[in-house]
């Protein structure tokens, strides 16, 4: 429709889902004496990077136990077995490396 030389057009954008907040886990008061999982997403050379981070913990924070844990399959798949293991045996997780 044209009114006074102006045109009305339709919006081409799709319908976005509504966003609602998801819970974040409470933080730890300290990492000392805790187990931190270093979770390798198996993309590019993430494993080499996380092993270097594991070495950093061993040198600089020996009171932190670290577990290097590659995900079971490709990062596109959910991995409940690994997440359940971390929940049962770990206190925190560092996941990487997203590129």
């Amino acid at each position: 429709m044209t009114t006074n030389g102006k045109i009305t057009t339709l919006n081409p954008v799709g319908f976005a889902p509504k966003v609602t907040r998801k819970p974040l886990a409470p933080r730890l008061d300290t990492l000392e004496g805790r187990t931190v999982y270093l979770v390798d997403c198996r993309f590019d050379d993430s494993d080499i990077f996380l092993k270097q981070m594991q070495a950093w913990f061993a040198e600089r924070m020996p009171g932190v136990r670290t577990v290097f844990k590659p995900i079971s399959s490709v990062y596109l798949n959910d991995d409940p077995a690994t997440w359940n293991e971390i929940k049962a045996r770990g206190h925190a997780a560092i996941l990487g490396v997203g590129h």
């Binding site: 998801k22 819970p23 974040l24 886990a25 409470p26 933080r27 730890l28 979770v39 990077f49 997440w83 359940n84 971390i86 929940k87 770990g90 206190h91 925190a92 997780a93 560092i94 996941l95 990487g96 490396v97 997203g98 590129h99």
Partner: peptide, 13 residues
């Protein structure tokens, strides 16, 4: 891991 399993997490990128 953070939202569903309640584990404090840091994501590296």
């Amino acid at each position: 891991v953070e939202a569903t399993y309640g584990v404090p997490t840091v994501a590296m990128h």
